[in-house]
Design a protein around this nucleic acid. Structure first.
Lengths: 335, 335
DNA sequence: TGCTATGATGCAAGCGCTTTCAGAAAATGG
DNA sequence: CCATTTTCTGAAAGCGCTTGCATCATAGCA
């Protein structure tokens, strides 16, 4: 049961392999009846071209790599879905690679994908040092950065969310509409760009309403419900008082919610709680979470498309910033 | 800036390409100092073997494919994580492919992966018809089935959860410890094997305690919170009465929880609610969900390992059934 | 010392496909 | 009706790597 090759097809169809290749790829005109014969032969033999051979001969892998820091959190799912769809639409395949998160940033996290020679790389990991990205860019491989702005001296396009406007709006909402004055903020993982932007916006909102920034009210939620839960429990235990909480993202918000409830604090009566991302469960928790809707799946899809655009030589696309908007539910105190 | 090939390395190291290949693959003894020279040359040139060429020459792709029905639900994440880790441990790569869920089962959902010629296939989709699986098996490509038992006339190993014992235990818990008599059941998607098994166990538990099975109390929750929420709302609206609910899985349980709450039913006072899987959020909802703990990530990892075992010719492993256990929290009525 | 295992290497034949080049056949135009 | 383009097809040269076979020392063993 040897593999059916292009030769077998050519033979059966009574043509040369060049012709078979051409009907396969549509790279040159082929007479309609010849096409029919070839198609027929392919069908009969159940011919499946060998990807590796095409790659080797055609010098393109038809594969894009996705470099992720870890597969966790509700956030990753819609993202992956968007990416897969975008990639599939273009007829490419998706190679998922978990970047080993060994502490040393000096290591070569992208290596495996490098080696596998994908046509392009989607990078979703703050962990990947700028220098590494610069290196990758210089190899000429198309890259798209997810939620990480383009480092200088490169022009890898990035896909990001609009953080500032919505964050400011949601924080101001707590101040203006719910009369909160002591509003805490939970940051994301260290050096997370989104988090930095959100913190700036948070501070700006406070400042705008004459509320002094209190460093006590800022902690690292790490976009993780465990972490946020522990942190908030700790705060509560140590008498840190606040009447509003912008949790940085929805995962942290849920963790915080749990901690608050366990400590007997009511949401939203005692504390107005808001998140960011509008992940699937945001509407499902009790009370439903007021948050910022971020088009995560669309971001994945957009990233895939930007990458494919580069791969296909259709130019270097500009960075994309996807709009977000506040979604008012009940956790802030709205009816 | 042409590609650095094995030739360049060989030349710089002053050896033949065969030797380079051998130090690369360790397929034959090479003198230590030669190895050093070659390694050196590789380093200097920053040589990266081209995967496609290795595949073509070596007749193996070093890639396994994952066929998924859709990327959604909390369930998929730990599964993917387990798979990726298992695959990565073996030094292989993971190609993720979303099976188009066009209604026609007649289509060829696996085709794309087929074409890409992976060394093996992880199949996680009830949608893939048995006939298709049989066909795949007959092509000789290693396969592992996820949550779907091996069809007859094939011996593709499968990874499944132990459904019966725990389900029976959790349902009996509602009957015995919480005095529930009208216990409803939400099934998974049609033809989902886990669901079928769980339903059998559910019925067995009822029977064991002399409770008549009432078909009115069975609905399709589809392992989806939206679907479950709609269904339960509907039931409540139409006066379907129940004091216990085994939601089939945790996603459906959360949906049901929401519907119950919206309708003013208290959990667990009015309705004892339990799920299955112990997904990450199960402990986070309010009240925390009593459920059956299923090692989802371990299942992914096990599947990857079974597949790799086949790929490496280390024999055809037997199916695996992973143990589950009831996790008592508060949604059933326990303190 | 002669003879065979063994170690270390090179040569060259592919792996299955794409693509350039050139040629044959058919279509076009004046 | 001949020159010229256009359409279609085949031969053949790789793409970068693995691997079977041959080679040649060197070492082991009687």
């Amino acid at each position: 049961m040897a593999r059916v090759t292009i030769n077998d097809v050519a033979q059966l169809a009574g043509v040369s392999i060049s012709t078979v290749s051409r009907v396969l790829n549509g790279t040159a005109p082929v007479a309609v009846e010849t096409v029919a014969q070839v198609r027929d032969a392919m069908e009969k033999l159940n011919y499946k071209p060998l990807a590796a051979a095409r790659t080797l001969a055609g010098r393109r892998t038809n594969t894009v790599g996705l470099l992720v820091p870890e597969i966790t959190g509700e956030f990753f799912m819609p993202l992956l879905r968007g990416i897969e769809e975008g990639v599939q639409e273009a007829g490419l395949d998706l190679l998922v690679h978990l970047a080993s998160q060994n502490g040393d940033a000096g290591a070569n996290p992208a290596l495996p994908l490098d080696e596998h020679n994908t046509d392009g790389l989607l990078v979703f990991t703050g962990r990947l040092a700028d220098s590494e990205i610069v290196r990758l860019c210089h190899t000429g491989i198309p890259i798209v950065l997810l939620f990480q702005s383009t480092p200088s001296y490169t022009q890898a396009p990035s896909v990001m969310f609009e953080n500032t406007v919505s964050t400011q709006e949601i924080v101001e909402h707590l101040i203006v509409d719910h009369g909160r004055r002591r509003i805490a903020f939970l940051s994301g993982p260290p050096q997370n760009e989104d988090s930095t932007l959100r913190e700036h916006a948070y501070r700006a909102a406070l400042a705008k309403h004459g509320i002094a920034f209190d460093p006590v009210l800022v902690g690292e939620g790490g976009y993780s419900h465990e972490r946020a839960q522990i942190l908030i429990s700790d705060w509560l235990l140590h008498g840190v008082e606040f009447d509003g909480l912008f949790a940085g993202d929805d995962s942290a918000a849920v963790g915080a919610l749990l901690a608050l409830r366990r400590a007997g604090r009511r949401v939203p009566e005692d504390v107005s709680l808001v998140g960011f991302d509008d992940l699937p469960f945001a509407a499902l928790v009790d009370p439903p979470l007021t948050t910022v809707g971020a088009p995560v799946e669309a971001a994945g899809r957009a990233a895939a498309q930007l990458l494919i655009q580069q791969i296909q030589g259709r130019g270097m696309p500009p960075p994309i910033e996807l709009p977000t908007h506040v979604i008012y539910r009940q956790s802030c105190g709205c009816a």
